[in-house]
Amino acid sequence: LQLFIKTLTGKTSTVEMEPSDTIENLKAKIQDKEGIPPDQQRLIFAGKQLEDGRTLSDYNIQKESTLHLVL
């Protein structure tokens, strides 16, 4: 599924993920695209901070969801 990652600067990146992927996997993919180390990334979806060990489906993240990346 395609996700949009929006940064505080207003920049939006697109990443392709599976519902079974963990937040950790997602942060690794963001690191590949943006060069931001996972330990500096905080991802927010629906007002919640996402935890590394959980999966996208745990948070009911659907295709074309927008996640907010806070550093």
Rank of each mutant, 00 (worst) to 15 (best):
1 L>A: 04
1 L>K: 04
2 Q>F: 12
2 Q>A: 07
2 Q>S: 10
2 Q>P: 10
3 L>E: 02
6 K>Y: 07
6 K>E: 09
7 T>A: 08
7 T>N: 09
8 L>C: 15
9 T>S: 14
9 T>Y: 13
10 G>V: 02
10 G>C: 05
10 G>Y: 03
11 K>R: 10
11 K>C: 10
11 K>L: 11
11 K>Q: 10
12 T>S: 08
13 S>T: 15
13 S>L: 15
14 T>L: 12
14 T>Q: 10
15 V>N: 01
15 V>C: 03
15 V>M: 09
15 V>G: 01
16 E>S: 11
16 E>F: 15
16 E>K: 09
16 E>D: 09
16 E>Q: 11
17 M>A: 13
17 M>K: 01
17 M>G: 05
18 E>K: 13
18 E>S: 13
19 P>Y: 10
19 P>I: 09
21 D>Q: 07
23 I>V: 12
24 E>S: 12
25 N>W: 09
25 N>V: 12
25 N>Q: 15
26 L>C: 00
26 L>V: 07
26 L>N: 00
26 L>M: 04
27 K>R: 06
27 K>I: 03
28 A>S: 10
29 K>A: 10
29 K>N: 04
30 I>F: 03
30 I>E: 00
30 I>P: 00
31 Q>A: 14
32 D>M: 14
32 D>H: 11
32 D>A: 14
33 K>F: 10
33 K>R: 11
33 K>C: 06
33 K>N: 09
33 K>Q: 13
36 I>D: 02
37 P>T: 05
37 P>A: 08
38 P>L: 12
38 P>F: 12
38 P>K: 15
39 D>E: 13
39 D>A: 12
41 Q>S: 04
41 Q>V: 10
41 Q>T: 05
41 Q>D: 01
43 L>E: 00
43 L>Y: 07
43 L>C: 00
44 I>H: 09
44 I>F: 15
45 F>K: 03
45 F>M: 05
45 F>T: 02
46 A>W: 08
46 A>N: 15
46 A>Q: 14
46 A>F: 09
47 G>T: 04
47 G>N: 06
47 G>R: 03
47 G>D: 06
48 K>I: 14
48 K>P: 01
48 K>W: 07
48 K>Y: 08
48 K>Q: 14
49 Q>Y: 13
49 Q>M: 13
49 Q>H: 11
50 L>K: 00
50 L>I: 04
51 E>F: 06
52 D>V: 07
53 G>S: 12
53 G>D: 10
53 G>A: 12
54 R>N: 10
55 T>W: 04
55 T>P: 06
55 T>K: 12
55 T>N: 06
55 T>M: 11
56 L>K: 00
56 L>R: 00
56 L>A: 03
57 S>D: 09
58 D>V: 03
59 Y>L: 05
59 Y>M: 03
59 Y>F: 04
60 N>W: 05
60 N>Y: 06
60 N>S: 09
61 I>Y: 00
61 I>V: 07
61 I>S: 02
62 Q>H: 10
62 Q>A: 10
63 K>I: 06
63 K>M: 13
63 K>V: 07
66 T>A: 05
67 L>A: 02
67 L>M: 05
67 L>P: 02
67 L>N: 01
68 H>D: 08
68 H>I: 15
69 L>H: 01
70 V>Q: 08
70 V>G: 05
71 L>D: 07
71 L>F: 10
71 L>N: 07
